[in-house]
Design a protein around this nucleic acid. Structure first.
Ligand SMILES: [Zn+2]
Ligand SMILES: [Zn+2]
Ligand SMILES: [Zn+2]
Ligand SMILES: [Zn+2]
Lengths: 140, 140
DNA sequence: CCTTGAAGCTCTAGTGACTAGAGGTTGTAG
DNA sequence: CTACAACCTCTAGTCACTAGAGCTTCAAGG
């Protein structure tokens, strides 16, 4: 049996975050001591590892919830799991697309000024004031 | 003079967002009507355009505040402006780096399963359970 | 001049995924 | 038995909005 601190050390997830995961229903402790402290078993450790890894891949709490539900029912089809992964991939690709546009514009803007003039005619400031200087459509 | 709704239409910034910008000190109205409604002049319209464009490039409210301060003092050096832009570019590049790693792993994971098996031995679920399947270090 | 309805106002609370802090209790090593 | 690290709960804060309630004002048509 592990304390919350031991779980934290083994997975790299901070203690308050583990408590937060319990609050939102992702991870329940195996039980409590007489003094009300959480105790986890090996299953809890593995589940927290799963959560951590999925979070590190950008999956939302909601998506991870669904994935854990699937894991608990080994007989169910894994179609939903692949859909969730594909959705996440699509999200990431969309973000990449947007950030690439941002990078293009920020490179142009940054290179347009050495920072040694007056802010009166600074290329950074004038570029920000007018989207018509931009080569791409962009937003976050 | 423009009402908040006219400003909204011209810039594409939603009305509650404009009020939020006032609350955090980014944009003040030129004045109020007798009935307490906000009225803006051309300067306000331009400033909101600046804010909108900077937000669309991912700058934080805090950064935009600093940039507007610089704009208000045309005699000051624009060094800070270029620094802010370069910081933003560095941020964007860091995010791109991370998202690219995520994409690599998510492609592998998505392609590893057709979604026609049982969740018992689904490649998506086993990959999520163990980082050792991953080819990159990754996090958000 | 009067009515109507769109548009405005303020204030509070909710979003996601935590993080920080206060103030108190428990576990454990020496 | 004592010290103190680690634990507990609860509230509030982060960022940049967004939604809603409940009320007031503006402007156009009759
Ligand atoms: Zn400059
Ligand atoms: Zn632009
Ligand atoms: Zn599968
Ligand atoms: Zn991994």
């Amino acid at each position: 049996m592990f304390s919350i601190g031991q779980l934290s050390k083994q997975t790299g997830v901070k203690v308050p975050t583990i408590r937060y995961y319990e609050q939102v229903g992702l991870l329940v402790s195996a039980g409590r001591t007489e003094g009300n402290q959480r105790r986890y078993d090996k299953e809890g450790l593995e589940r927290l590892g799963f959560i951590r890894h999925a979070r590190d891949l950008g999956f939302s709490i909601e998506a991870i919830s669904a994935l854990i539900d699937l894991q608990q029912h080994p007989d169910r089809s894994c179609q939903e799991a692949t859909e969730i992964a594909q959705d996440q991939l699509a999200d990431v690709r969309e973000k990449l697309r947007r950030l690439t546009a941002l990078e293009t514009e920020l490179v142009r803007i940054s290179e347009g000024c050495d920072g040694d003039g007056s802010s009166n005619d600074c290329y950074v400031l004038t570029s920000l004031a007018d989207h018509r200087h931009c080569r791409t459509e962009h937003y976050c």
